[in-house]
Design a protein around this nucleic acid. Sequence first.
DNA 1: AACGCGCCCTGTCCGC
DNA 2: TGCGGACAGGGCGCGT
Length: 271
Amino acid sequence: MPELPEVETIVRDLARQLPGAEIRDVEVAYPDLVQGEGAGDFARGLRGAAFRQVTRRAKNILLHLDRGLLVVNLGMTGRLLVRRPGDPAPSHLGVRIRLADGRELDYHDVRRFGCLQRYTDEGWARREEALGIEPLSDDFTPAWLAEASRKSRVAVKTWLMDQRRVVGVGNIYASEALFRAKIDPRRPAHSLRPEESARLVGAVREVLREAIEFRGTTLLDYRDASGERGEFAGRLRVYGREGEPCRTCGNPVERIVQGGRSTFYCPHCQR
DNA sequence: AACGCGCCCTGTCCGC
DNA sequence: TGCGGACAGGGCGCGT
């Protein structure tokens, strides 16, 4: 479910609400969500720790503690919610973190593709090496894209979604960025001309920034840390619009499958 | 090495 | 109304 804009929205919410809060105890309803150690050690390791700050790396939520960090990946349907006394109980509770001030930080996940894992600072630094560059950082430039994709024959849409290269771009924003850049998603990554690399970098940054401004895209499951929907869905230009008229040329938007995932694009506008 | 595929899991929707 | 199949925002591990 969540790509960079959705995760960033949650992180900004949590960064205002969590620092200073102390963990009273932890209840793990689904042990398979906890990675790296057993549920008992996980719960004991968190008990008594205090939240320092909350940041994002790729599609991961980094909850920095006074000892190490707790990293949450939401998978497809994960939600991380701050719950106050009296708020309705979640229907698919995975992990409940009770805070000393009476609030709860609840992780729910219908499909349970998400995960939570504790890391030491060094452990996370090692794990992070496998992740690509941040698309909203200064590292993401047309020159970098041209060089990094030079030897890759995979379709540019599949290439964009590979988290070892660029992080944070998932199935929705890959389609949207390629539409904005007017590039056919089936093109081999290495075939982009310099001006196309430049357009793609600009389009990725633009669509991610706009989506953050609108607090992300809610198709079905996504909710922010307060349980509210994102408002970007109505601004999607191609994703989920198979057969509907392209907002630029009026020809029907098409859906194809690439790497087992749906891709939406306009064959007339994207070449 | 890079790439394509299947799988993890539950829920919803659509066609028959 | 019921049932089977396709599909859903991610990521990992396998084989070639």
